[in-house]
């Protein structure tokens, strides 16, 4: 995806656009133009998302230890440290597309962006607490599913107006009534650091 810079008319690729945005000079465009789409939209209509001309994007993962303005300080799981710069075009996902206000210290994240000269990563997308687990359904209640991920038992909360299901690759539906105990399923959702449960964005039921 390319944008035209309004001053020069030169094509503005994702790397240069993000760099400009991080420095505070970007013209605001929809974040989806850079690849950040919500789960349902991406599922319903998976569009090409990244500029193939960008051969190397930066990536970071870990837990947020501090939020200073628009910069997230992140402790990586291997002892590494990252500074994630949110810009006015950063797409933020936390169960659903959201804003920087929803991001909290203690959250986990995956971030994609561009390395900046000052050592930060200018993020085009940040996925907060996102998990995508292959599970076996162990219990079903009106407002939650119980499942195992490997040997780990987890509770997945059904979130009104958010949680959807797909049965054998079919269209998304808010109807979870066809979920059965013992079924294999893929749970896309947001981990809750406070109680180690998951808010479910989508459950894909298999055979």
């Amino acid at each position: 995806m390319r944008q035209n810079h309004e001053n020069t008319g030169r094509p503005l690729d994702r790397r240069r656009f993000l760099t400009t945005a991080a420095l505070g000079g970007a013209t605001i465009v929809g974040a989806s133009a850079l690849g950040g789409l919500d789960a349902d939209a991406a599922f319903a209509e998976p569009m090409p998302s990244l500029d193939p001309a960008i051969t190397k994007s930066a990536f970071a993962e870990g837990r947020i230890t501090r939020i200073k303005g628009s910069v997230l300080e992140v402790a990586g799981s291997y002892g590494d440290q990252h500074l994630i710069q949110l810009t006015n075009v950063t797409s933020i996902w936390k169960l659903r597309p959201t804003t920087a206000d929803a991001v909290k210290v203690g959250d986990g994240l995956y971030a994609r962006g561009v390395d900046m000269p000052d050592g930060t990563i200018a993020a085009d997308a940040v996925w907060v607490n996102i998990v995508n687990l292959y599970v076996t359904i162990r219990g079903i209640a009106k407002d939650r599913l119980h499942f195992t991920h490997g040997s780990h038992e987890t509770v997945g909360h059904v979130v009104p107006d958010t949680t959807t299901a797909s049965y054998l690759g079919g269209a998304l539906t808010p109807d979870l009534s066809r979920v059965r105990i013992g079924q294999a399923a893929q749970i896309l959702g947001a981990w809750r650091p406070a109680d180690d449960a998951i808010d479910i964005a989508r459950v894909t039921v298999g055979h």
Binding site: A42, P46, R112, W127, I130, N132, Q186, T204
Partner: peptide, 11 residues
């Protein structure tokens, strides 16, 4: 994430 969005789940 190098080729798509994690929130899509599959590609």
């Amino acid at each position: 994430s190098a080729i798509g969005n994690l929130s899509s789940g599959k590609l």
